[in-house]
């Protein structure tokens, strides 16, 4: 019934760019569509670009974490890119640290992250 956010495919990567404030149902649809397409398009990576989002509440936050977890089960990686500083501060204050979600500053760095072998963090 409600609109769906388009999911683009570039090679083995699925790309979603969220351009406006989402209704809850659209958030759930996106989660469903992504899970489906990771399998049907044999994707190895997912990039969710939230540069345009001025608000990420716990509902959207939960969707991001769930998509990351689902993609891991399906042998793909999810990178959330472009989170604004104010949004990041608010999420931390809200108590949502999105453990298990890979992040990058922008689309380009997100794509680079997908190309790297699974992270071996230097200390």
């Amino acid at each position: 019934m409600s609109e769906r956010i388009p999911i683009l495919r570039i090679g083995e990567t699925l790309l979603v760019s969220v351009q406006f404030d989402l209704e809850d149902q659209m958030v759930l649809n996106l989660q469903e569509d992504l899970a489906e397409q990771i399998v049907s398009k044999a994707a190895r990576g997912v990039i969710i670009d939230i540069t345009a989002l001025e608000i990420v509440d716990s509902f959207v936050g939960r969707m991001l974490a769930t998509v990351a977890a689902i993609s891991r089960v399906l042998d793909a990686r999810t990178v959330v890119v472009g989170m604004r500083p104010a949004v990041a501060i608010t999420l931390v204050e809200l108590g949502l640290s999105l453990g298990g979600v890979d992040t990058a500053l922008d689309l380009e760095k997100g794509l680079a992250k997908l190309r790297q072998p699974t992270s071996s963090v230097l200390r």
């Binding site: 809850d24 509440d57 716990s58 509902f59 608010t90 809200l94």
Partner: peptide, 17 residues
């Protein structure tokens, strides 16, 4: 401030839900 705006809108979103 931008951060405070974001916090207030987010809080309102949580409570409205």
């Amino acid at each position: 401030s931008l951060v405070d705006q974001t916090k207030m809108i987010t809080a309102a979103s949580e409570l409205a839900r």
